[in-house]
Amino acid sequence: MLQVEKVSKSYRSTSVLTEVTFQMEQGESLGLIGESGSGKSTMAKLIVGLEHLDGGQITLNGLDFQQLRGAELRKARRHVQVVFQDPWASLNPKLPVWKSIIEPLENYPDVVPSFLKGVRNDKRKMAEILLEKVGLDRDFLERYPHQLSGGQRQRVGIARGIGLQPNLLICDEPTSSLDVSIQAQILNLLKELKKEFNMSYLFISHDMASVQYMCDRIAVFKQGVLVDLFLSKDLFSDTRHPYTKMLVQATVER
């Protein structure tokens, strides 16, 4: 479904990504792990099309984002949605929750996700259904972001992300700014939704343990280079890249 081929990107003279290549199948979840500055977030931005690549190719469902323009590009983009890292910054503070949630659906009036059939013209009803999917009740519809806790905001962000029933949901460090007791709730929710909608996840994190919990395969980034790509079950294998081993070592408990 997603093909990333020899993708390079640099800002001014510093190279952020060098010749990164990987593929993803529908329904699969791939974890991107690395330190800050390793280029994992840039990878995500390139896939959604928030940044332009310097070299290489990214194709989703056979469509090359770089070659599409205008309406075509907008149409193709709806298959990829993002759950952002910072739930405090990712919702417009001046919009009530329900408006944020259904914004993508307003932007693509032709898209009718299976779970929104029959209510496609009722904006509130759609928002209500989406909220229910992420475990929030209808009381939240009219609230503003500042009235919600971090975990609740992240749920709203997820509801917005799944609204268009995308093929690929990019989760950019979705739990790293949340409290420990909430992280498990959000990870479980993401896992359930993935099963329900057969979405693919690109799960970006610096925490090996959450990546292992969430993903089928793991890609390790170091300074813009993809150093290791393997099945999650092979995480402890001896053939792992030394850098991966270091990361594992840092995360296991003595």
């Binding site: 420990v180 992280q183 498990a184 990870l187 090996m208 343990a209 292992q212 999650s232 995360t251």
Partner: peptide, 15 residues
Amino acid sequence: ARPVLSRVVPEKLVV
């Protein structure tokens, strides 16, 4: 209630 690196990954985390 936190993901821990282990050889056996739980299907669901305790919440």
